[in-house]
């Protein structure tokens, strides 16, 4: 295999506790190609988000590390931009200012007019040009998530890290947002690592689904290739028999092999 774009190299993470270290992640090894959409799927509490934070540099691995384009990275930076679980928008800034803050700090040398137009372009990309002057408190959950995605994309990251990005949305908005983000992603194919616990979300969006075993000492149990052609639509996938085969294999992994935490040892 040619050199991977992003490599998770035998990452382990232990948290100190009064009763000795708690090993959350053990030897997680994964190679991701440029432009690939990878979903990390597992039961809640299995350490998916911890792993994402390590890739983002917000948390340090106890052993192993993250290699991006051949260089080890352990500090946070806008080349691995995160779309946070609860949006993490600054409530005192408008939608536009939230995006602009990100653009300003990642394009320090660029002229003001260019930075403004970048911020406006990405806000328009997620369909929120009309809400540019609204504060996060004045827009809906789905719209906040759009702003958060616009902020992330506007920094033009090498890797986009999505931490259960649709988890806080209602079911209808979630499906709408999944398809919209998919459309945006299919247009420019940024490398994506997405943490989720939704099987259908992973199948709809990802090229590969990386299955995490249950903690403690969670690691990668299996990797499924998602065989559907791009661009994808939910309707087409649901008609494809391969969807049900894949779904059953994922369910079997989650509930037969790793349904009980005892089995994880």
């Amino acid at each position: 295999m040619i050199q991977p774009f992003l490599e998770l190299s035998y990452i382990s993470k232990a948290f100190p506790t009064p009763k000795g270290p708690f090993v959350a992640l053990k030897d997680v090894a994964l190679k991701i190609r440029k432009g690939e959409f990878v979903a990390l799927l597992g039961h809640s509490g299995c350490g998916k988000s911890t792993l994402l934070n390590i890739v983002a540099g917000l948390s340090q691995a106890s052993a192993g590390g993250v290699i991006l384009e051949g260089k080890e990275t352990d500090q946070p930076g806008p080349d691995r931009m995160v779309v946070f679980q609860n949006y993490a928008l600054l409530p005192w800034l408008t939608a536009y200012e939230n995006v602009f803050l990100a653009v300003r700090s990642t394009m320090p040398g660029a002229p003001e007019s260019e930075r403004r137009s970048v911020a406006e372009r990405y806000l328009a990309l997620v369909g929120l040009a009309a809400k540019a002057d609204k504060r996060p408190g004045e827009i809906s959950g789905g719209q906040k998530q759009r702003v958060s995605i616009a902020r992330a994309l506007a920094t033009r990251p090498k890797v986009l890290l999505l931490d259960e990005p649709f988890g806080a949305l209602d079911a209808l908005t979630r499906e709408e947002m999944q398809e919209e983000v998919l459309k945006i992603w299919e247009a420019d194919r940024t490398t994506v690592l997405m943490v989720t616990h939704e099987i259908d979300e992973a199948i709809l969006m990802a090229d590969r689904i990386v299955m995490m075993t249950n903690g403690p000492a969670a690691t990668i149990g299996e990797v499924f290739e998602v065989p559907f052609a791009r661009p994808r639509s939910r309707a087409e996938i649901l008609e494809d028999p391969a969807y049900y085969t894949l779904r059953n294999r994922i369910l079997a992994f989650l509930y037969d092999r790793f349904g009980e935490p005892v089995l994880a040892d």
Partner: peptide, 21 residues
Amino acid sequence: QDYRNVASVLKLSKPTYFFEI
């Protein structure tokens, strides 16, 4: 912590962090 995370991912400068966050 969310705001601090945003600041560190965006590598905001110290003055920007101080005044904007």
